[in-house]
Nucleic acid binder design. Structure first.
Length: 424
RNA sequence: AGAGAGUUGGCGGAGUGGUCGAACGCGCCGGUCUUGAAAACCGGAGACUGUCACAGGUCCGGGGGUUCGAAUCCCUCACUCUCUGCCA
């Protein structure tokens, strides 16, 4: 949620930014926000005056009673009745403005960074960088959904049987490859200075609100209705929420956390031919990075995280490209996002495997995540996160790109983790 | 799942319906002493809102109520802990 003071100070820029991402009626909405805020303030000021008077009256009455001056006390009491009524009215009015204001703010997305390219859809994303060559594969190279059956390493039918579509079962070398990737990613993160976190994979409602999954993306999360808990769609949710209502010291920055969790997505209504096999799942594994950074340094941190993800892909010997998302394709809470896509040789497609974003103070405002700067001012921090990495599409690309006539070659860096160098 | 206890400032922990934003201890910051540190002693400090700055207002788990006045009394919800049961 955008901070009201930020909107006030940067009104034109905010409107322009929202228009860039095709937020409808940006100018009117921002005007409405500012007006609501003004009304809210006025009401609050009025209410506080009444409260101050009541407080005073109460004190006086106390003193009068103590002094045994009953009559005067009664007179004073009578006067407070009006004040009480006024304060009740003003309170409910104030609440009305406040509710309307937060409701409006909840529905305003973050403002794209100035350098974010304009554009409406994924077509308009800017390709910043490309690495490696598409693998030279046989004409009859197999897509991963055939390879996994051929080598009996991932089984969708068994998943269907015990759970449902989109919940594959990993077997034998398939399972070990998963474990190898998770361990490789976690070890790398640790070497890069991230503290490993193992969070719960169900969260409460409040956590969903703070990172922005609620209220608008309810449909994407599996809900445990009995307890009103949600299966996490990403480790971003529990890990970022660790810092809810926290005031950090400047010298604690940046906070760097990494966590492996399974991730659950309902992905309601988004199934089709283009999401076959491992391309889209209801449950998948991911190592996620979360950083909390000083507002002055969040963009250099974004670059740092992007470089980090890139070198992971290079170590895995996967051809990839880096996209800078255009304003229209940007996530609701993000100001700038890099997507990393690997090339999947047999499908001949780019597959998104990581998304690295800066949220500036948008999440921090909901989280009440702040720090004290050197002037002892309490200020909102910036949050960032990135996948490093999501497993299924990495697995798809490894399987497809590394297939040979006598099996699938495991990338060198993973061999110490898998304990084998070929799936045959 | 059953029974009970609890929720107060960074932590621990007092708290009488008015003078309580709240004793005390620990921790933290500054100072004195010291070559330096520790100890000791002295001093300081909650969050939010608001103002040019004051003032003012809000916050003792959330919401509601009683009262001129609520951390304190009542209702309600949430959460936590302990014991019993079950279980990796």
């Amino acid at each position: 949620m955008l901070h009201i003071a930020y909107i006030k100070d940067n009104k034109d820029q905010v409107i322009k930014g929202l228009e860039k991402r095709f937020f409808p009626d940006a100018a009117q909405t921002i005007d409405a926000v500012l007006m609501l805020d003004q009304q809210r303030r006025n009401t609050k000021a009025a209410l506080e005056e009444v409260l101050a008077e009541s407080n005073n009256a109460a004190k006086t009455i106390g003193l009068l009673l103590k002094a045994g001056n009953k009559q005067e006390a009664e007179v004073a009491k009578a006067r407070t009745a009006t004040l009480k009524e006024q304060s009740k009215e003003l309170t409910s009015l104030l609440r009305q403005y406040e509710d309307e204001l937060t409701q409006t703010l909840y529905n305003i997305p973050n403002v794209p960074h100035l350098t974010v390219p304009s554009g409406r859809t994924a077509e308009d994303n800017e390709v910043l960088y490309q690495y490696g060559q598409p693998p030279a594969l046989d004409e009859n190279a197999l897509p991963h959904w055939e390879l996994i059956t051929k080598y009996d390493i991932i089984d969708f039918d068994l998943g269907n049987k015990i759970t449902g579509a989109g919940f594959p079962v990993y077997k034998g070398k398939g399972a070990r490859l998963q474990r190898a990737l998770v361990n490789f990613f976690l070890d790398e993160a640790q070497q890069a200075g991230y503290t490993e976190i193992q969070p719960p994979i169900v969260v409460n409602e409040q956590s969903g609100y703070s990172t922005g999954q609620l209220p608008d993306k309810e449909g994407q999360m599996y809900e445990i209705t009995e307890e009103k808990l949600y299966l996490i769609p990403t480790a971003e949710v529990p890990i970022t929420n660790l810092y809810r209502d926290v005031i950090l010291k400047e010298e604690q920055l940046p906070v760097k956390n990494a966590g492996y969790t399974p991730c659950f997505r309902r992905e309601a209504g988004s199934w089709g031919a283009h999401v076959r096999g491992l391309n889209r799942l209801h449950q998948f594994d991911k190592v996620e990075l979360v950083q909390i950074q000083h507002p002055d340094r969040s963009y250099s941190t974004l670059e740092e995280m992007s470089v980090y993800v890139r070198q992971l892909l290079e170590k895995l010997e996967l051809p990839y490209r880096v996209l800078k998302l255009c304003a229209g394709d940007l996530g609701f809470t993000s100001t700038m996002t890099y997507d990393m896509e690997v090339y999947s040789g047999a499908q001949k497609r780019w597959l998104e495997v990581s998304s690295v974003s800066n949220f500036e103070a948008y999440q921090a405002n909901r989280l009440k995540l702040r720090f004290k700067d050197n002037k002892k001012q309490t200020r909102l921090l910036h949050t960032l996160n990135g996948s490093a990495l999501a497993l299924p599409r990495i697995v798809a690309a490894i399987l497809e790109n590394n297939q040979t006539s006598n099996g699938i070659t495991i990338p060198k860096v993973l061999r110490p983790y898998t304990g084998f160098d070929k799936i045959a």
